[in-house]
Structures are given as C-alpha cells and as structure tokens.
C-alpha cells in the first residue's frame, strides 16, 4: 500500500495522480447530478487547455533547463495582435508572422543570455516589458477586431463534441514535443542540460545552442497560443493577457516540472494544465464561485512547494529528534 502510494506520488506519475484526484473530488461533489460529467464541461476544459496549455509548455520547457522565461506572457499578447493585424486576408500569413515573431524574440533573448552569461529572469523581464510595450504601440492601446469571422468560427467549432480545431492543435503540439523529447537526440540534450549543465557540456552537448533553441521554442509556442486565442476570440487587445503567467507557471509545476531543473515531461505539463482546467470548468459546472477555484489552486501549489522543498525532511527529522530527546530527558528525570 505504502509502496503503491510512493509510486503514484513519485515524480513521474504525480501530475497524473493529481489530475485523477481532481476528477474524483469533483465527481464526489457532483454526486451524479451530471453537471460535471458532461460533454459540455469536457469541451470547455479543452478550450481552456488550448488557451493556457501552449504558454505553459513554453514556460515549462524553459524551466526544464533551469531558466525562467517570463516573456511568454508578453509574447502571447504581441503575437495575437500581430496575427490579427496581418492575417485579415490570409490567416496563415498572420499565423506565420506571429510565430516568427515568437521565434525571433526567443532567439534574441537566448543569445543575449548565453553570450553575456546573464540569468534568464533579468533578460526575460526586460523582454516581457518590451514586448508588452510593443503590443501597446502596435494596437494604439485599443482592442483590434478581427473581421475574418469564418476563421474564428472554424477554430472554435466542436469536433466530435469534445475538441475544437484550436484545442486539437494545442494537443498535437504537446504530442509532437513529447515525441521529440522521448526519441530524438535534441530531447536527450535538453534533459541533460537541465540535469547538470556543466556535466553535459563536458560530455559534448552544446548547451548554449540547447538554451537558445529552448527559448526559441518557448517563444514560438506562446506565440502560437496567442495567435490561436486571438483568432478564435476575433479580437486582440494589449491588456488582459498579463494574468497568464501565474497560471502557466502553476500548471507547469503541478505538471511535475521542477524549478531546480532536469525534471519534467511535456505530457506531465499537459496533465498539469488539464488539472487546472478541470478544476476551473468543473467548479463552474457545479456552481462553485470562481474565487474558490483560485483558493484551491493556491493551496495545491503551496502543498507542492512544501512537499518539494529540499529541507523538508531535514526539518522534520530535526523536530522529531528534539522531541525524542526531550522525552528521554523527561524520563531520566523521573525516578
């Protein structure tokens, strides 16, 4: 029993255990009224997944190599605006422009980091502020409408009731990256760089190139997420997308990505994102007010932070020893 629990809560399976746990808890609250277990809820879960998932994937990849790409939030907004402005006639052109912007911005930031040996937080913070500024300038601080209605409708139309074209695209990206990570040398190099950068460098991995590549991918994914979101909403606005960073980081961490690097898997990130989406849509479906969702997410994150803390065991042991010592003294004092 204890052994099974250890496996289920171990690094590999924990994201999936948490996800199943969330489903079970919601099902228990729902008690067969059918609000939670419905196609509608599942559809909205995957719609949310499409919005949050790609940003979380980008951020999660950067966290896997022990960096932190704050700029994903800014990139998502900028790419959405670029796509809406360039893709009126031809949506593919807008898509390409947006994603190229993501690749360029990620590549530039990656180059700055590796050439100057600066930590990613500083560079991507500057990147975030700059990208946000560019979005404001491009849009003139207004909401830009996307007049190509057929594209918006096609992207959000349910396929088989569960998925839309948008969420299917997001899922496909996840599967593709999972395959790359599992079966190619690139995947191995990324994992190695995250695990121990110096050792991988000595073993012949070009870690600088890996870092630049990861940041390009991170930029591209968040850009793609932004483009798809703006297309399906039929609008892009400079504000409102900044709140995406905290949930994306939360999803990646619930998904088993460690901020200490070297740990994490694209499918785990997918499970993390799904957990957040299931909680949000599920709570909506059974009529729990949105703030409760926020509190539950925060509590889950706090628990993970504490469980993953490197000194937790040490502090617990120290506390137990102290208690035992006190008891021994107490017993010795009594005749």
């Amino acid at each position: 029993m204890r052994h099974t629990l250890a496996i289920l809560l171990g690094a590999k399976l924990r994201p999936f255990t948490i996800m199943v746990g969330a489903i079970i808890v919601l099902a228990l609250i729902d008690r067969g009224t059918g609000y939670f277990f419905s196609v509608g809820t599942a559809f909205s879960v995957f719609q949310l997944f499409a919005t949050l998932g790609l940003v979380a994937l980008g951020l999660g990849l950067s966290m896997m190599v022990r960096e932190f790409d704050l700029s994903v939030a800014g990139m998502m907004g900028l790419a959405g605006c670029i796509a809406v402005m360039t893709g009126v006639e031809n949506p593919w052109l807008g898509l390409v422009c947006g994603v190229v912007a993501g690749v360029v911005s990620g590549g530039l930031q990656g180059l700055i980091m590796t050439r100057l040996r600066i930590s990613s937080v500083g560079v991507t913070l500057g990147g975030l502020l700059t990208l946000q500024g560019m979005t404001y300038v491009l849009t003139g601080n207004r909401t830009i409408n996307y007049p190509n209605l057929p594209v918006s409708l096609t992207l959000s139309k349910p396929i088989e009731g569960l998925l839309s074209l948008r969420s299917a695209a997001a899922l496909a990206v996840f599967v593709f990256i999972a395959l790359v990570m599992a079966f190619t040398r690139i995947g191995r190099d990324v994992a190695a760089t995250g695990g121990d950068r110096r050792a991988s460098m000595i073993a012949g991995v070009n870690t600088d190139r890996v870092l630049v590549g990861v940041f390009m991918a991170s930029g591209a994914f968040s850009a793609l997420g932004g483009v798809l979101l703006s297309y399906s909403l039929g609008a892009a606005s400079p504000a409102g997308l900044a709140d995406v960073l905290a949930p994306a980081a939360a999803a990646a961490i619930i998904g088993g990505v460690s901020l200490l690097g070297g740990r994490g898997h694209p499918l785990g990130i997918a499970a993390g994102v799904l957990t957040l989406c299931i909680l949000r849509s599920g709570f909506n479906a059974i009529g729990v007010p949105p703030p409760v969702h926020e509190v539950v997410t925060g509590a889950i994150l706090l628990v993970i932070a504490i469980v993953d803390a490197p000194d937790l065991v040490r502090e617990l042991t120290r506390w137990r020893l102290r208690r035992a010592e006190r008891r021994a003294k107490h017993e010795a004092a009594q005749p």
Partner: peptide, 23 residues
C-alpha cells in the same frame, strides 16, 4: 526553513490572496 522555491511560493500566495479577498 524548508528552502521551498520562492517564485512558486509567491505564486501560491498570489492565488490564495486573490481568491480569499474576492470571497
């Protein structure tokens, strides 16, 4: 005391604060 990750803890606190305040 636990050397928990500071960014993660602050994100958790952010969610808890926002949710509680709204309630």
């Amino acid at each position: 005391w636990l050397k928990a990750n500071p960014i993660l803890v602050s994100i958790a606190a952010l969610a808890l604060l926002l949710g509680t305040a709204q309630i």
